[in-house]
Amino acid sequence: MGAGEKSSAPISMVVLMRRKQLIHVSSKKSSLNKSRFGALPWIAPVIVMIVVMVLYPAYEMIRTSFHDVDQTGFMKKWNGLTNYRVLFKNPDLIPVMTRTLLWVVVIVLATVLISLPVAQILHSKFPGRKFVRYAIIVPWAASVVMTATSWRWILDSFYGILNTLCLDLHIIKEPIDWLGNTTQSFIWLMVVAVFVSVPFTAYVILAGLTTVPEDILEAATVDGATGFQRYRTIIFPLLRPALLVSTVINLINVFNSFPIIWVITGGGPGYATDTTTTLAYKLSFRDQNIGASASMATINFMIILLFIMAFLKVSKWKEASE
């Protein structure tokens, strides 16, 4: 990696310089169009949407987490940190948090590792490429609930097609309950989550691949670089922005992932396959403790904020906006 970074430095600097020029040009253009309100009329609908759909609910959620809420959903009075104390006393919290960490790290890593070659295949020219590209969009375009429901029945021990397949191919002797034990079902949940995340990630990387300048690759080939060398020293370093974007968006998506777990195992048995997101739901709708649920959701919100801040820091947003 270290050597690769060094040798790629000039190339990425070229790209950076080009980018700066582009930014420069486009900012000149926009300053010509400046009216009294600046860009406000154009972004106002989005701002309104963010305030109404994101900021207000977030405010309500945080407020709820500091209030005593009865089972029927009525807010009674301010009760400070009581909800948080109740939440931290919950014996299932620590296992669920650990599991969430595992959930996020494994899925995001696996997704990126699988998406890199997938994107490479989609980028290379072959007959029927268009069809393959469309086919890969399907799991992404389909509703996650739908995908998860399909998987739940694929994996069903009595009627599942996976069992039928494996039995017919004589891979197994008797039906297996794929979601039977906790570890096994959690692995399957992660498989489904990766399956759902790969298309988006592959497409972001594919977009990154199209920005790799052909002439540099050609020059490298002329200089005698092997395919692997080109990938390691030219393509991969240039993919870093795409990788960064897809990783952070995946981190957030996977962390917030609710339908896969809910549809396939319901977080059960007990709390054995819950993440913090499904736990927040269960606290509210099973344990009827809306306050503790809001505390859990607030903590989740804070974790997401951390992700986003890390993202902005890594992508050096301050420099870019100057």
């Binding site: 089972q71 059960g268 048995p269 007990g270 709390y271 269960k282 709708f285 099973r286 344990d287 009827q288 403790n289």
Partner: peptide, 17 residues
């Protein structure tokens, strides 16, 4: 009992264990 719904929810969730 006022807390029945919460207790029922907890039982549904975990009694399988």
């Amino acid at each position: 009992i006022a807390t029945w719904n919460a207790v029922k929810g907890a039982i549904q969730q975990s009694v399988g264990l």
